[in-house]
Nucleic acid binder design. Structure first.
Length: 136
RNA sequence: AAUAUAAAUGGUCUUAUCGCCUGUUUAUUCAGGAGGAAAGUCCGGGCAACAAAGGGCACCACACUUCCUAACAGGAAGGGUCACGUAAAAAUGAUACAGAAAGUGCAACAGAAAGUAUACCGCAUCCUUUUUGGGGUGUAAGGGUGAAAUGGUGAGGUAAGAGCUUACCGCCUCCAUAGUGAUAUGGAGGGCACUGCAAACCUUGUGGGUUGAAAGGCCAAAUAAACUCUGCUUAUCCUAAUUUUUUUUAGGUUGAAGGAUUGCCCGUCUUAUUUUUUCGUUAAGGAAAGAGCAGAGAGGGUAGGCUGAUAAAAAUCAUAAGCAAUUUUGAUUUUAGAUAAAUGAUAAGAGUCUCUUUGAGAUACAGAACCCGGCUUAUAAGUUUAUAUUUACU
RNA sequence: GGUCGCGUGGCCGAGCGGCUAGGCAGAGGUCUGCAAAACCUUUUACAGCGGUUCGAAUCCGCUCGCGACCU
């Protein structure tokens, strides 16, 4: 994260283990039904209104099979998305007032593959919007 | 030599930082972590559950021979046929290659006729007519139609012709020889009878029980043995002991039963219940409560873990048998195991190839989901082989 | 993971081996003062590749796309 010199990355864990993933079907359907969303191409971000008990939200990543027919492309986008989230999730761990939702869904809406930097900007902005939501 | 096409081969590597999954450890230690197709799901098997007396019909699949294999619609070797090719061959390529002499059906248009054959133009001859012509008989060589026309060529024969006769070829039947066999070669006879289509129905032979790991097995968690209404029940029989009998005790036995739900749980068959209070002098009997069961109503909880599941028809190397597919023997090795789904991102460099060569560009197809064997399809550069074209040289 | 079905003009949709019906839509015309309706004329198709057959939308194989079911 060269564009955030004030925050030494090493102080925050950059892991992304199984506990941070959204698995429960019930929670997923609830998220799609009642969650709110922000949009910044090529991603759409869903988040639940309730705040998390844990420090970090549980995350769902989704790539549409309709837009990307080949499993290779889907895998690659999913992995890149996960990588970007992993590097940007320090936003939830910062000091000060912040809003940490219980669940987050990251959905790739675009129909073509984008550069890594484009995707990174999109997600970084979306996460910032979520964090600052409570203060407004 | 270049270009194009096809086939085969081929399927880049290293380091650093931050991560992911699995196993392991005292330790964030160490080890391992996509493919030739992991794809399509087109075949075959393992494995599992369920079913099953035997036989037939139906349905589905397959179909030259021999061999390989756990098995196959796969593979190997061979045979036939067709194509290409040639003087003739060889080589090469293709091949769903049983049966059309069991039966049914179909063969548009054209054509005389498309199978119990037949005659438009013809040919020959006879009759008739002034002639053109008309009619009868014989014939099928030639013409014409068609995808396909009832053996082909030469000679004889004839009014003209015709397997009418004959030689060769083809076809059919039988025999002999060679070969494990498909089949091949040779001989004898028949005298031409037998159009095509079975990826049309069908016949013959062979094989097939059904369903698929979301199968199957084990274990937990959670709520509720909740609530409302209605009905029924508070047992039966046998044996033994006791007793005049009723009864009592012990043991056994019989009977009866589901429901909601996408699934599971809220019940068990090693079986629940078989009591209490009260009215009544007592008995018989009545009432209430509780309990159990059934029906109806209205509801609640959960969406999980382990196993299956990765040591096998395994891989590599050698060895022996075989033309080969493949098999035998020996040695060595352990080589993904996730569960909405890990195997990644960033940076630097190397390799290979291309170009306009200080440099720039390219680096395919594609991602395990129980496991194997095949088939099919996709696939960059390079390498090899074949074919075609062009150019240059001898 | 497994099992089925479908693909015919711009749209719907028939077609059991022999010239791909029909309707809607589009274009032009007739009718009308102008339109609508009606009538006449006309344009545009068998998902792709290979095989069987004299001949394939149809039969067979492979590929592509779409949809459904089990769950």
């Amino acid at each position: 994260m060269a564009d955030d010199p004030g925050l030494p990355v090493s102080t925050f864990a950059q892991t992304f283990s199984k506990q941070e993933r959204l698995i429960s079907k019930k929670a997923i359907s609830l998220l799609f039904k009642e969650g709110r969303s922000f949009f910044k191409y090529p991603y759409k971000l869903l988040f639940s209104v309730t705040s998390a008990e844990a420090q970090l939200p549980k995350v769902l990543i989704s790539i549409s099979k309709k837009n990307f027919k080949k499993a290779v492309d889907r895998n690659k986008l999913k992995r890149q998305t996960r990588e970007i989230y992993r590097k940007n999730k320090f936003l939830f761990q910062q000091e000060g007032e912040k809003f940490v939702p219980e669940h987050i869904g990251l959905i790739y809406v675009g129909k073509e593959k984008e550069d890594f930097s484009v995707m990174e900007k999109s997600i970084s902005k979306l996460l910032k919007m979520v964090v600052e939501k409570s203060t407004k």
